[in-house]
């Protein structure tokens, strides 16, 4: 620890990641939108095409609020999608829409090194006449590339299911060092050279990032957007997980530990 650290305070790694992600998405035309943490079931579930009494509601363990029927702690930041589109439509502003939302979400589950009942999510939504799944791939590749600083990033989709997207995919990412830089490195210890910015643990390995897909037409309809004319993509990833990968953090519970032995490292 350097002596000047004693003077300045430290930024929480989650805040650093949010700051960085906001910049990356801002540059791609996404504005930052927000929504409440204590949310109605309509915005958290129904409007997102998650029907009542359907097994898909079991996919997320939800915190319900006592004596407040219909209110939950949001299980994802997707409530922001609906609220944003709804407000734009109300203002008479038609797509294209591009938003990113980042904030706290909740899951009612036991905690361990990889699970927290409160964590942060980043979600992006792009709606327009010709927003495609291919553009989702490209957008994610650019985000990962800038965030992890690899010389080359591959994004892979696997089929999945989410009620709010159709088609739905799971997103995997692989960071690679470009062949050219590896060949360019003349020293045998090229992996230590400047050209390699990707931490070794993350290099050339598929990592699960989260869910994504094309926005389900019912979600657009529920927000008042013409689903015949417009289509879009959306994705949602855990910010804590991104931070854990970026810095090699081994326990998600450190994020809410308020422990300076952790925070002062950033």
């Amino acid at each position: 620890m350097k002596p000047q650290d004693v003077q300045r305070g430290h930024l929480h790694p989650i805040s650093s990641l949010i700051r960085e992600a906001n910049k990356i998405f801002f540059d791609m035309g996404f504005s930052l939108a927000e929504g409440p943490l204590l949310e109605s079931e309509w915005y958290n579930f129904d409007a997102l095409n998650v029907p009542k009494d359907h097994p898909s509601r079991d996919m997320q363990d939800t915190f319900f609020i006592k004596n407040e029927q219909g209110n939950v702690l949001r299980t994802h930041t997707s409530n922001v999608q609906i609220r944003y589109m709804e407000s734009q439509v109300k203002k008479g502003i038609q797509p294209p829409y591009r938003i990113v939302s980042m904030g706290k979400v909740f899951r009612n589950e036991a905690t361990d090194m990889g699970h927290e009942s409160e964590f942060f999510q980043i979600e992006a939504l792009a709606v327009g006449e010709d927003v495609t799944l291919a553009q989702l791939k490209g957008t994610l590749a650019r985000f990962f590339q800038e965030l992890f600083g690899g010389t080359s990033v591959e994004v892979r989709f696997r089929p999945s299911f989410f009620p709010f997207t159709e088609p739905s995919v799971e997103v995997d990412m692989q960071l690679m060092e470009a062949k050219t830089s590896r060949e360019a490195g003349s020293s045998p210890d090229a992996s230590q050279s400047e050209a390699f910015r990707v931490p070794e643990k993350l290099r050339d390995k598929w990592m699960e990032m989260g869910g994504a897909g094309m926005v389900h037409p019912n979600v657009l309809k529920n927000s008042g957007v013409d689903s015949e004319k417009y289509q879009g993509f959306a994705f949602g990833f855990g910010i804590d997980r991104l931070a854990m990968l970026k810095w090699g953090i081994d326990d998600i519970r450190l994020m809410h530990s308020a422990d300076l032995r952790f925070i002062n490292q950033f």
Partner: peptide, 23 residues
């Protein structure tokens, strides 16, 4: 010189209470 922390939203007191907290 202040460092940023996140503490839990869950507490021993407050106005609103979760009905089904697993732990």
């Amino acid at each position: 010189g202040y460092s940023e922390v996140f503490t839990s939203v869950f507490s021993e007191k407050g106005e609103r209470v979760v009905a089904n907290k697993v732990d």
